[in-house]
Write a protein that binds this DNA or RNA. Structure first.
Lengths: 130, 130
DNA sequence: TTCGACCTTCACATTAGTGGCAACGTTGAG
DNA sequence: CTCAACGTTGCCACTAATGTGAAGGTCGAA
């Protein structure tokens, strides 16, 4: 598919898709006329990129871990670059920290919302009737 | 405490603490000589700020949800600003999405690491002995 | 008085995007 | 075929957010 279609499917502006290519995150092939052409699997990939960027992971890191996020790992692993495993472990642990942290704070927010609701729905009387 | 001590305790450079103040995330009092002075509870607060920023939450949002992350909610809730609840719900849901996404991808990375290990430790023989 | 910690202020750096433009490709109507 | 409308391309510059560096001055203890 061409860039416009991918933009619609992923909700990511075409402008941004070119930017991600510039950053080395996606590498579409080209048609004879120079237009970029994207394979279907890139739809998922672009969504992953968005999520990772939104989660505060820099594109430099993303480009390293992206190949590891696809399902059939068994084939790719053959060329195990030396530093890769270490990088992955580091990044995974960083993600785990982030997850724990986000869960903790999300739950704090949830409790706060509940406190608001309690304070709002019945500030003066214990709503006995419907 | 003064800024240097807070910087040590939080691992956040003094320069950055001034920046966060500029962004309205912390409001230290001042001594007679103009030095900033920080209460103990700000240590936790600064760590929270770091975590939230690292998780891709913009400071503009952080300044809104920070007051809700402290433990004793019951007192603060009295002045329930109208839009606050909605903002909190939105932000909490956004955090939940981020959490799910991070968990999913962290697990993918973990599986990939395991695949590397399997491919590395015994590429040719099924390691029968220790 | 000297030195380290702190102050303000201005400027610069990096990351992640966005805007605008001129030129070219594609497609469908007349 | 020609023309208009629209998608695409490359390019350059610009914005916004998050920091960082450095100059030049002040505070207070040794």
């Amino acid at each position: 598919m061409r860039i416009g279609e991918l933009a619609k499917k992923t909700e990511v502006p075409a402008r941004m898709l070119r930017y991600y290519e510039e950053q080395g995150l996606i590498s579409p092939r080209r048609l004879d006329n120079g237009y970029r052409t994207y394979d279907d699997y890139l739809v998922d990939r672009v969504r992953k990129i968005r999520g990772l960027v939104d989660s505060g992971i820099p594109t430099r890191i993303i480009s390293n871990i992206l190949p590891c996020l696809d399902q059939p790992q068994t084939i790719v692993v053959k060329n195990a670059e030396p530093g890769l495993r270490e990088l992955l472990v580091t990044e995974r642990d960083r993600m785990s920290e982030k997850i724990d942290f986000l869960i903790h704070n999300r739950d704090s927010i949830t409790r706060y919302i509940e406190a608001i609701d309690r304070a709002t729905v019945s500030p003066r009387q214990t709503s006995r009737a419907s």
